[in-house]
Amino acid sequence: MLNAPRGDWQSWQPSATLETLRLRAKAIQKIRAFFEGRGVLEVTTPVWLPEVAPERHQTPPVCSGGFLLTSPETCMKRLVAAGSGAIFQMGPAFRQGESGRLHHPEFTMLEWYRPHWGLDQLVDEVTTLIQLVLPVPAIRIMTFQEAFQSFVGADPFQAPLETLAEALNEVLRPGDDRPALVDRLFVQRLEPAIAPLDTVLILTGFPPWEPGMAELNPGPPKVARRFEVFFRGVELANGYQESRDPLELEQRMLTANAARRRDGLNPLPIDRKFLQAMEAGFPSCAGVALGVDRLLMLAFDKEGIDKVMTFQELPGSSSMDRSF
């Protein structure tokens, strides 16, 4: 068991070996040198903020009337809007209640923004960076729709809901809608199917109902201009052609809050300074966030992210979602 408590007498010890932590330090240095060599400025933005960009399925831990951020996205975009040029940040990010082999409520995120870049350029850069740490022979790029058709055998955008349920070997359950079924197929069918591949798999053109802050491509099919990077079935990175439309972004945050209320979760205060920055003018930009612990887990051939992290602390209760 990954999160089984060790005996009390040794519970102070790190979950990674010291040898792994030395390798980790080397890899982190390589990543910093990579960005320095490309003229990308390292920045440090607050992890504790009074307002956030609400998402339906991500909850920031509450901390003294503010929130520990699920990603440094809003502050970094304020820097880009202020004319910073290309920037990167490697530091802690927080997700309330996410705990498992590939998840921990506090983890290390590497996020960077490339003003005036398109998604293709950023995909190239992400894969170059990944290969610096994790040598892989090949890269394969597919659309989300193609991946579903070839690995799951169903069209995520057009197949009837019954067909999607059938692909899960299940009958429709009450409350099953397309986003719920596609999410289930993703974790139950797609991720296991791509796990044996030796290639880095990049999926593009994500469902419009989970756009994050990506631009929408009207299609058809209508998709969010996002990409995700997978290796061994593990999601490593998530990138956007960033939406620059403050009204659209505000609307998405309001929609996320409405969905949170329906899901029984607290709505979150909307980051006004971020929206002001968007109104002031944000350049065309591509941005991506990468889970450093997962990348190192794969690079060092470990079975869980705990094996590349110093400590895995769980402040408060691990029962989550509804806890604030």
Partner: peptide
Amino acid sequence: ASFVKPGKGQAFTK
């Protein structure tokens, strides 16, 4: 039993 969650998607127990 494992915790799974697509990045922007909802959390599941598989």
